[in-house]
């Protein structure tokens, strides 16, 4: 079943077009790895999906529901209430964590549950504890962000997003800002999520993770999807010179391609 479908997404910053017509279908339960050179538009595309950016052409549907813009008639941005409700169905984890610094780990996770999902405090707390357990931070619930390592902060951020029970999770280079020794703990959490059947779009330069966890790899180049397929197809049979040279940088990781 197609969970998310993006059709012909165009996005401009001022005069420069950074997305030039992205088409992508994501099936329920898929783990899609989005790879590509810096500046190819990966972040912009994720932000369009979660309505953090407006785009001037194209349509995105989540479970058949048009996202961000009215489905029929003139293209019109939806109201804030509707957009917020739609965003709640899509979780997003950022490169820079963006935890709320004035709240404990537990409060960070609870905020959306009580204010957006309307849960009682007790209910939200129970769920926050469950997810903090799940990401291995049972003993850090009452810590403030500044008391946590980067890896721990990013795991709280993941718990905060997943606790909302989104239909789709977006990860934008979530390990890029971490010290190398902290990367593994975050990837492990993501792998655990993938196994549990969560549909995920992951922008990452961690090629081993991409190879082992992704069910599908999408190579973006110059604001377009240049190649897409199983990890094996994309990583081992690059169809374009650009992809070959991009993968060449990760040469040592895979052995000779």
């Amino acid at each position: 079943m197609v969970l998310l479908s993006a059709r012909d997404i165009h996005k401009k910053y001022d005069e420069t077009e950074v997305l030039k017509g992205i088409d992508l279908d994501i099936e329920q339960g898929q783990v899609v790895a989005l790879i590509g050179a810096s500046g190819s538009g990966k972040t912009t595309f994720l932000r369009c999906i979660n309505l953090l950016e407006e785009y001037h052409q194209g349509r995105i549907e989540l479970e058949g529901e048009s996202i961000g813009y009215s489905a029929n008639g003139r293209r019109r941005k939806l109201g804030e209430r509707q957009i917020s409700a739609q965003r709640a169905k899509i979780g997003m984890v950022f490169q820079s964590f963006n935890l709320f610094p004035h709240m404990t780990a537990e409060a960070n996770v609870m905020l959306g549950l009580t204010k957006v999902r309307g849960m009682s405090n007790a209910e939200a707390q129970e769920r926050a504890r469950h997810w903090l357990d799940r990401v291995g931070l049972a003993d850090r619930r009452q810590h403030y962000p500044y008391q946590l390592s980067g890896g721990q902060q990013q795991r709280v951020a993941i718990a905060r997003a997943v606790a909302m029970e989104p239909r789709l999770m977006l990860f934008d280079e979530v390990t890029s800002a971490l010290d190398p020794e902290l990367v593994a703990e975050v990837l492990a959490v993501m792998q655990d999520l993938a196994k549990s059947g969560m549909t995920m779009v992951v922008v990452s330069h961690e090629m081993l993770f991409v190879r082992d966890v992704a069910t599908r790899v999408v190579f973006m180049d110059g604001g377009l999807v240049a190649q897409s397929g199983t990890p094996d197809e994309v990583l081992h049979n690059p169809q374009t010179e650009r992809l070959r040279s991009f993968l060449g940088r990760f040469h040592g990781i895979f052995g000779p391609v």
């Binding site: 709320f100 957006v116 905060r160």
Partner: peptide, 27 residues
């Protein structure tokens, strides 16, 4: 307050005044 704070609030579906009240203003 960094823009990322707003965006983190948006990403969990909070509306403008909720973000203001619970995220931006306390900081």
């Amino acid at each position: 307050i960094p823009q990322g704070q707003h965006e983190a609030g948006m990403a969990i579906g909070m509306r403008f005044f909720q973000r203001l009240r619970y995220i931006i203003l306390p900081q």
